[in-house]
Design a protein around this nucleic acid. Structure first.
Lengths: 132, 132
DNA sequence: GCCACGTATTCCCTGAGGAGAATATGTCGG
DNA sequence: CCGACATATTCTCCTCAGGGAATACGTGGC
């Protein structure tokens, strides 16, 4: 069942958040880190998971990997993504993600720049490596 | 995340089939066995799984346990069940389940009878215990 | 060629979950 | 009380998934 593979992808909050944010447009990993405030390895692994199963596609932009929903989305996936967007519309976590996304990139990141360098020093984790 | 719990329930074909069939109305375990053609333990465990997570409710009818979608379904669940019904509409397995369901119970099983006794000797599994 | 940066992969540990066989529980009819 | 039936639970085995730390890889700048 193809459908089951999709649901397996939706079984994790991190992945839900990734997909939800991707609904707004393509994004690079460091942006995801900043938006979700989760460690790099976590983001990266979940994106790999989604990629293996074809829920997202990745393209290299210089040093950055930009992830996006595939150009042609299967109907079942499309339906479920719509359903997801609908279900989390009022959820604080997901709203917060969108808020941070907009704060980071008022306009969609232009290909080739990504803007990652200019923003939030992506700390590796709660390790207070900063301001110490 | 409440939503994640729902998706976890949708990660297994057997459970998808159970929920799909339940969309047609309440059903007892032996009917499920006949409709899905799966062993008793499998059906039973997956129903228990769904029940723990509140996706289905169970009531005893004499010797039979009748499972049904809960009276009040949470909006997220409702949305996802609708999405599911939509996604599997053309899937052979799920269509087949519905076909067998209709063949077994042209009219919804009356509470108190269940009709289980009158129908398909529910074999425990592919074990050819019958006609030998 | 080396370094810094962004990202992916590996390793290790832990826990969940699916399958089946066997067994237990609950309910009814006698 | 016993036996038949419907269903649930337990046990064992196995695979997969998640988390984090450490490390590898790829790219661009000097």
């Amino acid at each position: 069942m193809e459908l089951v593979r999709i649901y397996e992808c939706l079984c994790d909050v991190t992945r839900l958040r990734l997909l939800h944010v991707l609904g707004q447009g393509p994004l690079c990993v460091c942006h995801f880190q900043a938006v979700l405030d989760e460690p790099q390895v976590k983001i990266s692994k979940h994106l790999a998971y989604l990629r293996e199963r074809g829920l997202v596609e990745a393209t290299r932009e210089g040093k950055w990997m930009v992830y996006a929903l595939p150009a042609k989305v299967a109907p079942e996936l499309r339906a479920n993504l719509a359903c997801l967007q609908d279900c989390v519309r009022e959820n604080p976590v997901f709203r917060h993600d969108l808020a941070r996304l907009r704060r980071l990139a008022p306009q969609p990141p232009a290909a080739g720049s990504c803007g990652c360098g200019s923003m939030a020093r992506s700390r590796t984790r709660g390790t207070k490596t900063l301001s110490s």
